[in-house]
């Protein structure tokens, strides 16, 4: 069921996920489109997430934004954000959740600084911008990096803090799949007044729209965005995985099928979460309502497809 409407306020609105937005030329969404988008969100009972560019919006735009309940996704350094986006590694402090968009190499190099940042932000979402480029050696390194970060998270918990790092703590807290939901629970309105599955589909190919404000939504084969129609994912318990349908499309040509790399990365995180949960529980009662995360003998559910029946 549709719950969220993401509105890209400008052609240069910051990326907050795996995709890149290389647009340099500022071009605001026309004000009447913004008003119509907000109206659409109200009528469809959707929670709106505004994605900002790196400059201040005109007053008239700010008034429209404030006319509806919403959250603001802004580049790091801007005021009044609900989520701040950091592109490329840098040390940050904030009192709102931070999305850190970095490459795997940046993560490997800066893991200790990232561990320190966990004490300086209420929540850190690390988004790896090159998941599809992971090689076997990278998986090994990633496993070690997650183990290192896990030790730091454990120490913070022992100290009575509650750090949140999506790669490690989300899976512990979840009892079912909690994926991105693009095309299923969320859609995106682009500055051109057209709807897209997510911002990535807009920036990749503007012709790839799924409707517009005038004619409404028309998502073809929309069932394929749902978990039940994803043969690999519906057998998976790496519940924290983004299950990025854009990466799916890019790597396997199908929105419902993740790549090997996306699966292995998600399972390394899942397994690290398992170890973290066990470690924290050695210090006392922790998340008593959550069951232990099971030990499994695979990193890619695809490899177990013969047992799915």
């Amino acid at each position: 069921m549709l719950q969220y409407l993401i509105i890209l306020l400008d052609e240069t609105s910051t990326s907050f996920c795996h995709y890149e937005n290389a647009n340099q030329e500022r071009k605001l969404m026309p004000l009447d489109v913004l008003k119509e988008g907000v109206r659409f969100g109200m009528m469809e009972n959707l929670m709106i997430q505004f994605v900002y560019p790196d400059y201040e919006l005109p007053q008239a735009y700010q008034e429209v934004v404030e006319s509806i309940d919403h959250s603001k996704i802004k580049p790091y350094g801007q005021e009044d954000a609900d989520v701040l986006i950091v592109n490329g590694f840098q040390k940050v402090k904030a009192d709102v959740p931070v999305v850190l968009r970095i490459t795997k190499q940046e993560l490997f190099v800066h893991q200790e600084e990232i561990a320190v940042m966990l004490g300086d932000v209420p929540r850190l979402n690390v988004v790896l911008t090159d998941v599809e480029a992971f090689a076997e050696a990278d998986f090994e390194t990633y496993k070690k990096v997650l183990a290192g970060l896990s030790s730091e998270v454990e120490k913070l918990y022992v100290d009575g803090k509650s750090p949140q790092l999506n790669l490690l703590t989300d899976r512990m807290m979840l009892s079912q799949m909690n994926n991105c939901g693009a095309g299923d629970t969320s859609i995106t309105l682009a500055p051109n007044g057209k709807f897209y599955v997510c911002p990535a589909f807009y920036y990749e190919n503007e012709a790839d729209s799924i409707g517009d404000l005038e004619h409404g939504l028309g998502i073809k084969n929309k069932q394929l965005y749902k978990l039940e129609y994803a043969p690999i994912c519906r057998h998976c318990d790496a519940w924290q995985c983004k299950r990025c349908v854009w990466l799916n499309c890019k790597t396997t040509l199908e929105v419902n099928t993740p790549s090997h790399e996306q699966c292995v990365v998600a399972h390394l995180e899942r397994n690290a979460s398992r170890e973290l949960l066990r470690s924290i529980r050695q210090h006392g009662t922790f998340l008593p309502e959550r069951e232990e995360i099971k030990e499994i003998d695979y990193l890619d559910p695809f490899d177990k497809r013969d047992t799915w029946q």
Partner: peptide, 15 residues
Amino acid sequence: DKNKLRPFLTLDRTT
């Protein structure tokens, strides 16, 4: 490219 084969090898009747 084995990733491109994954949708084919996990395709079932009902889906």
